[in-house]
Write a protein that binds this DNA or RNA. Sequence first.
DNA 1: TATTAGCACTCACGCATATCGAGTGCTAAG
DNA 2: CTTAGCACTCGATATGCGTGAGTGCTAATA
Lengths: 344, 344
Amino acid sequence: MRMLTERQLEVLLSVVYEFIESGEHVGSRTLSKRYLTGRSAATIRNEMADLEEMGYLMQPHTSAGRVPTTRAYRLFVDTVLQRRRTKEQGSRELLDNLKAHRNGVEGALTFASDLLTQLSHYVGVAAVTQLKQARLAKIDFIRVDTSNVLLLVILEGGIVHHKLIGMPYDLSQDTLQDLARRINTLAGHEWGEVRVVLQNYIMGELGRYAESCRKALDDLDELLAGEHTTLFTGSLANLFYIPDFQDIGRFRALFSILEQEDGLVELLKKCDTTDGIGVMIGEENDMPEMENCAVVLSQSSSEGQKTTLGVIGPKRMNYEKVISVLDKVLLDLIDSPGESEGDG
Amino acid sequence: MRMLTERQLEVLLSVVYEFIESGEHVGSRTLSKRYLTGRSAATIRNEMADLEEMGYLMQPHTSAGRVPTTRAYRLFVDTVLQRRRTKEQGSRELLDNLKAHRNGVEGALTFASDLLTQLSHYVGVAAVTQLKQARLAKIDFIRVDTSNVLLLVILEGGIVHHKLIGMPYDLSQDTLQDLARRINTLAGHEWGEVRVVLQNYIMGELGRYAESCRKALDDLDELLAGEHTTLFTGSLANLFYIPDFQDIGRFRALFSILEQEDGLVELLKKCDTTDGIGVMIGEENDMPEMENCAVVLSQSSSEGQKTTLGVIGPKRMNYEKVISVLDKVLLDLIDSPGESEGDG
DNA sequence: TATTAGCACTCACGCATATCGAGTGCTAAG
DNA sequence: CTTAGCACTCGATATGCGTGAGTGCTAATA
C-alpha cells in the first residue's frame, strides 16, 4: 500500500471532517474554500481522484462530491486517537472503583449508560461480563413457598444474581440454610472449584435431595459458568434525530441489534480493546446490520470481571466528541462516588 | 345522538372492517361490490355522507373514500366485544394462578409479553402492580461488604425485590439477621402495619443504628408504599412492518411511550377494565403520542396485586384477532404450568 | 318515498419533461 | 506542478398532463 503524501492526508481528513459535520458529499470547491485555501479546486480534484483510487473515498454517483469510505474513517479515527494518546492518563484500570458506588454495579452501569447517551447524543451502553474466574462472595437460598426457592448469588465485585427455581420437593429453610452454609465456606474461590466440592457433597450426604439440588446446581451453572454479561443500554430516542437513520430500513437494522441483548453482547465481544479506547467502524464488526454504524468502546478487566463502556452511533459520528465524552464519563465515575448529575 | 339505522350500521362496520384489512380509504363502489351486494354504490354514498355528518367517518381529502374515526372504531370494537361476551367463560380471576409458574411472576410475565407479541404481531405487555395491601412474605438483609447491604423483599404472591443500599456504619450480619427476624414475624401483614411496628422497634432498641436503619426503611418504603409496577414489554420489532408506522414521526411518538417505563405504566393505569377485556382507541387515552394507537387490555386484581396483560398496536388494528389472542394467552397461562411454547 | 343511473367535478398519483446547479474529468496554459 | 477553463453528468426540483378512483348532485325509476 502506497503511503499518503502530506497533502493527501490533509485533503482526506478534511473530507471526513466536513462530511461528519454536514452529512453531504463534499466537493473540491468546498475544500478549496474552507480547508485548503492555498490550493485551487482543480488541484484538490486531482488529489481526490487519487484518494478514490486508493480506496479512501467514493462517489455516490458521477458528478457528486466525495464521501469517506470505512478506510477513511479508520485513518481519521486513528489520527484522532493518536493525538489523544499523548495527553492521556492511565484512566483505565481505575474503572474498578465504580463497583462500590451508586447501588452497586447495576446502579453504576445504568447511570453510566444514561450519562453516555445524554452527553454523546447517540446511544450509550455499559456492561459487565463476569469471567470464568469469577469468585463467589456469598450464596443464599430462600424458601418462598412449598415448591419455590429463591436462589441468590453475590459475586466478589458486587454483582448480584437472583433466580427463582422450582423444587419438586418442599425443602425446609433449615435444609437450605445448611446447604448455603456449606457453600459459603468456599467464598472467595472460583466457581469451578466451588462446583466440584458442592457436587461431592450433594452426592455423598444429601441423599434424597440429590435430584432437586442438581436442579439448583444447574441453574447456578447457567448463571456463573459461561461468560455471563449484564448489559445496560441507554435510551434509543436520540437515534430518531440522526439524519442517517431517517430511512426506516437502516433504523430497523440497527434496532434489531440494540433491542435484543444477545446481539449487543456479541457485538461488544468483538471489540477487545486492550489499550484505552477502541473504535469499530461499519463492516469492521462483521455484522451486516451494523454497516452504517460505529462503536466506540472502552474496556477494563480486573480479576473476575470485565467492564465495558461504550457509545453506538452512526458511522458518520462525531468521533472526537464521543471519545472525549467517554473519557469524561470514565473520570466522572471514578472521581465522584456521590450522586453527580450529568448535563447535556 | 340519533340512533343508527340497521343499514347504516352495516355500512359503518363494513368500512371499518375493510379499512382494517386494506389500510386504504374505502369507497362506495368497493362496499357495494364486496359487502352490500344488494345496494348500489349511490345508495351507499348517501349513507356514508350521513355517517360522516354524524362523526363516524371522514374523508382524508375530497374525492377520496371514507376512513373510520375513533368513534367508528369504538362502535366496531364494542360490537365485537358484545358478540364475544356470550361465549365468554369467566377466565379472569384465574389469572392469579400464573404466579407460581415459570420462575415466579417475572418469568411468567416475560413469557406472557413475548407470547402476546408473537401471536398478535403487535407489541405485547405484561405487568403487575402491587397495591397498598401488598403483604410481606419475607424480608432479608445480606451483608455484601463493609458499607453495602443487600435488601431483599419477597411479597406474598412471589414478587421479589432486591436493592443494594449503602450503609454509613458497618453492620454485622448478626445485627442484620436480628433485624430481619424481627420483621419476618410480621409476615403476612400489610406493609403499612409492618412499617409502624418496625419504626417503634428502631426508635426504641436499635439505638445507634437508628440512622442507618431509617435509610433501609426509606428504601423499603419506596419499593412498597406506592403502587409500584413491574413491567415487561415484548419486542418492538413488529412495529417496523406496520404500514401505519412507516412514517418516522409516528413511530417516534409511539416509541417515546414504549421505551420509558413511566409512560407505559401511566398508560396502563388509565384503562381500568373492571370487566374482562378493555380497549382504548386513539385519543381516548389522552396521550397525544398515542393518537394513532390502540391498547387492548385485560386486568385482574387479587388481594395485594393487580395483573395486567395487553397488546399495543396501531389504531387500525385487527381487534378481533388481538382480543382472541389475549383470551388464548390468558387461558394458556392458566392451563399449562409447564413450559409450553407459543407458536406464530 | 327510497333507490339508482348518469354526469360533472375533484384530486392524489404516476410519468415525462425541463431546468438548475454542484460537481467532475480533461486539457492547455502559466 | 498548478490552475483556469470548458464540456459534461446527474441528482434534485418543479411543471405539466393523463388517469382513475372517488364524490355530490340531479333526474329518472320502481
